[in-house]
Design a protein around this nucleic acid. Structure first.
Lengths: 225, 225
DNA sequence: CGCCGACTGTCACAGGGGTGTCACAGGGAA
DNA sequence: TTCCCTGTGACACCCCTGTGACAGTCGGCG
């Protein structure tokens, strides 16, 4: 049975969601502030966290970032605005998914199950993209059985892309996730690393089929068809 | 449970709508002036705002614009005249929908639910218009399963249109939303982009069924029938 | 019914912006 | 020290994009 931690300061929403999620077969712990949430997280080690963005004190993004420094468990953000900015910031701070308020318990439950399913696939020792196999336990990537000898940065880039297969990530987001920088000028940093990664991963680096360019946005790892 | 903010200066209408909306399962906060409305909005962060146009002091359009500077939550305007001018000004100041007075509580409730549903759909990963599927996460658009390879501008145009399916958007509005320009001379800019988009999206570009022309106004994305 | 004006569709072209690529130098690790 | 990784800047290329002109279409009016 999945064990969730729900961090939400609004009493009504917290109680309501706790009830609904419990009824849908989850074990639920709750916290009403970011501080409490972090403490409970360390004590109880939940399988997944549902996290409100608007919290007094430490906000949701910050909670997310702090957890991400040490752990990789799935995090779902609750965001009040349907604003894209929240989504972008959320993904940059390391969230796996987000749900827009007002939350329909059924929708939240569906997202939770989806993220957990995804997480199972991921945390399984390896995932395959065509002939390329990512082994997270061994931290190696092989192609047709041969070790690709990725450099640390290349590996992190590939891992971040593979955390969200099929989803386009902007250069800005990749910079945060992989390099932990905030500002990308007009440097070719991300592009250069992608190029080096493609040279090792792709069959034909000039016609990539795994790491696709999304013009005007960034890059995307295509899931195996 | 959706949390609404109702801004309306007429005591009778305000009280009546508050009662009706509460009965229909919403949480409702009310304000009797634009100033009070803005203050309450900042304090309470509602999910949606119902806003009278004719207000003493700051009028509804101005309230709408000020909120839009920072937030994207849905706003429904109450307008006394069925005048088209109100509708156009309202949409340009950033409202999502409008209801003409005298207001039938049932109608208002339906609009509220529609706008909230729209917000959910928007934030969901994908939406479908016939054989055309928009995947917001992957930033791709497919038709019969094939990638359409839209250019960045075409994609943004389609995304903005799909944010308000069934609603006509003027060239002026599209220019703001997609190009972030203020003034459109008599250039064919929007038309040209629509043409290129149609060429990729429509079955028969010369007889479009998805992106319809609204003569004298602009364009509209038809929802799947 | 036919004309006229306004609006829209279409297209080619030139300019610009975004992306791929590469060489090189600095720096960190073995 | 030596080697390899990594970030930077320059450059070329290609596709996108905005423009303007023209043709086609629709609606209104006499």
């Amino acid at each position: 049975m999945p064990f969730l931690l729900l961090i939400e300061d609004d009493d009504a929403i917290r109680t309501g969601l706790e009830l609904a999620l419990t009824r849908q077969g989850h074990r639920v712990a709750t916290a009403a502030s970011g501080e409490d949430g972090l403490r409970l997280f360390k004590e109880q080690r939940p399988d997944l966290i549902v996290l409100d963005v608007m919290l007094p004190g430490i906000d949701g993004f910050e909670v997310c970032r702090r957890i991400r420094r040490t752990d990789q468990l799935p995090i779902i953000l609750l965001t009040a605005r349907s604003d894209d900015i929240d989504v972008v910031v959320g993904l940059e701070s390391g969230a796996d998914d987000y749900v827009v308020k007002p939350v329909q318990p059924r929708v939240l439950d569906a997202r939770i199950r989806a993220v957990l399913r995804r997480g199972e696939r991921e945390s399984s020792d390896s995932s395959a993209y065509g002939s390329v196999v990512i082994d997270r336990a061994a931290m190696t990537v092989t192609k047709d059985g041969q070790d690709l000898q990725l450099t640390p940065t290349e590996l992190r880039l590939l891992l971040e892309l593979s955390r969200r297969p099929g989803q386009a990530l902007s250069r800005q987001q990749l910079l945060r996730l992989v390099w932990e920088h905030d500002y990308l000028g007009d440097s070719r940093l991300v592009d250069a690393c992608v190029q080096r990664l493609r040279a090792k991963v792709e069959d034909v680096p000039s016609a990539p089929t795994l790491i696709r360019t999304v013009r005007g946005v960034g890059y995307r790892l295509d899931p195996p068809s």
